[in-house]
């Protein structure tokens, strides 16, 4: 970065553009936040609400009283962590060999993986399989069937293919095997793509509800998105209010509108996953790889 001007006209122009863009992108987020704190009269009126007349936490009370939401939170976090870990491990294990152009039968194996991306038997055989494996109503059912993701494998493989072969070759000379090379050389060199895929996988596991819906029967193992889904698809509040009562709690729904509750649910459900990003972000900073290259 030596000798680069700290500031320029182009950059200034770009920054203004990004600021406008950020406002556009923040708008729905802000609107949802305001809605979640609005009183029902305001919530049920059309038109932009940029500031609530009064900040009312009722909707949050209602959602937090819905079923065992804290348990669902914990389950989702556990699922996201373990599921992401599994995906990363399997993705790396498959992507590294497939990145070797001289691997015999490489294309055949690639196609074996690709086919799985396009054909699936549908939910009934999936369910019977999970049932016969004895995974039904266990947490494994949420992370094992999705542990191998062909899309991620191809992305990572592609990234591996752009890594300079020279470093690998010299490690070979030093007597390292493929496994140590993967761990000691490829892994540190691939932090950005691993971070990206970890983020994708985490977002996937965070948002996934269908498997939870069909594989999990025990309420104590349910995930956050199941509750979100209940709220978003409920036609009116009375339906979810019933469900809240089933959960044995729930704030008074007297002063709430469905739109409040939905907004609050969305805010609650995206909170943690949105906060993950800044932590992953450091791997996207340009020049991060320079140290590892020399190391």
């Amino acid at each position: 970065m030596v000798g680069r001007k700290r500031f320029s006209f182009v950059e200034c122009f770009l920054m203004i553009g990004f600021i406008i863009f950020s406002i556009l992108v923040l708008y729905p987020f802000w609107q949802t936040l305001v809605l979640s704190f609005s009183d029902p009269n305001q919530a049920s009126s059309l038109g932009p609400n940029l500031w609530p007349e009064k900040w009312i936490p009722d909707a949050y009370q209602f959602v937090f009283g819905y079923g065992d939401i804290m348990k669902a939170y914990a389950n989702t976090i556990a699922r996201t962590l373990s599921g992401t870990f599994l995906i990363i491990v399997f993705t790396m294990l498959a992507a590294y060999p497939l990145s070797k152009k001289d691997l015999p039968y490489r294309n055949t194996i690639t196609i074996f993986f690709l086919i799985a991306m396009f054909f699936s038997g549908g939910i009934i055989p999936d369910y019977l399989l999970v049932k016969n494996l004895g995974l039904l109503d266990t947490r494994w059912a949420l992370i094992l069937p999705t542990a191998v993701n062909v899309f991620y494998i191809i992305i990572m493989r592609n990234y591996f293919m752009t890594i300079d072969k020279g470093i690998e070759e010299s490690a070979f000379m030093d007597g390292a095997n493929y496994f140590t090379i993967l761990i000691k050389i490829i892994l540190p060199l691939s932090k950005p793509v691993i971070a990206t895929i970890a983020l994708w996988a985490a977002v996937f596991h965070w948002n996934e509800w269908f498997h939870a819906l069909v594989y999990i029967q025990d309420d104590s193992k349910t995930v956050l998105q199941m509750i979100v889904r209940d709220m978003l698809t409920a036609m009116d509040l009375s339906q979810s209010a019933n469900a809240a009562a089933i959960g044995g709690g729930g704030g008074s729904s007297e002063n709430l509108m469905l739109s409040n509750v939905r907004a609050a649910t969305v805010m609650i459900s995206i909170g943690p996953i949105v906060l993950v990003y800044p932590f992953v972000q450091k791997y996207f900073i340009k020049g991060i790889m320079i140290g590892s290259l020399k190391g």
Binding site: I124, Y127, L128, L213, V214
Partner: peptide, 10 residues
């Protein structure tokens, strides 16, 4: 419907 169909299928 998914849960119902799966229950029947199994």
């Amino acid at each position: 419907k998914d849960q119902v169909n799966l229950m029947v299928a199994s």
